[in-house]
Simulated assay, not measured.
Amino acid sequence: MNPEKVVFGFFILLALTLNFGFVYGEIDNPDHHHALELAVVLVVNLIATVLKLGDRSQMGAVLLATSLVAILQLIAGAVIWTIAAHASADGFTPAVLSSVVSLAAGAMVANIVSVILLIIETTMLRR
């Protein structure tokens, strides 16, 4: 067993499951989505991206691309949340929360693609 692959797979799956936990619930209900959970999702996705930087294969490039997409969407969601909560005249509305959750759902799709690619890569390995 390769410990590096275990850590790599752990963070990819953790990113997906945490993202699902944030997205799950009514899209415009603030009781179902927490800012700290979004921050944790972003940090775990950043760690997963850093772990993907060392792979020089074609599969590694696609995995990195999916991770970058997820990070871009999560950062956009965090920026929208921050602006609405602190700088917007309207404040944090259900419409703003819907936008943030929609961006996180897009990141979750990218995380799903990462997990599928990881499964494909694992099954293609020869012993």
Rank of each mutant, 00 (worst) to 15 (best):
R127V: 11
F92P: 01
V100W: 03
T123E: 08
L14F: 10
T66V: 01
S88Y: 00
T66M: 15
A104Q: 04
G21E: 05
E121H: 14
E37R: 02
A78D: 03
S99E: 11
E26F: 04
L97C: 01
V113E: 14
S98H: 05
G60L: 04
T49G: 15
A35T: 03
A76P: 05
I71P: 12
L14I: 02
V109Q: 06
V6W: 09
S99G: 12
I116L: 14
W81N: 05
A15Y: 03
R127P: 14
L38D: 04
T93A: 03
A39Y: 04
L63G: 14
A61R: 14
V109N: 06
M124S: 07
A61M: 04
L64F: 10
A85W: 00
L14C: 07
R56E: 10
A70H: 12
V79K: 04
V109H: 09
I71R: 09
I75V: 15
I120S: 03
R126F: 11
S98Q: 06
L74Y: 10
T93F: 08
L42A: 15
L118K: 07
I80K: 02
F20A: 07
F20S: 03
L16G: 09
L38F: 06
I83G: 02
A61D: 10
G77I: 01
L51R: 05
I120V: 11
A105R: 08
T82E: 06
V44T: 13
A78N: 03
L63S: 15
I27H: 07
V44H: 11
S114Q: 15
L36V: 05
I12K: 14
L74E: 12
L42V: 11
L13Y: 15
G91T: 00
A35M: 06
T93M: 01
F20D: 06
G60S: 02
I120P: 00
H86N: 04
A87R: 03
D90P: 07
V23H: 01
V41K: 01
K52C: 15
G9R: 08
V62R: 09
T66E: 13
G91V: 00
L13T: 08
P3W: 09
P3K: 07
I119W: 04
V109M: 14
A39L: 09
L97A: 01
R126K: 09
L125G: 03
I116C: 09
Q73A: 12
R56P: 08
T122L: 03
A35R: 06
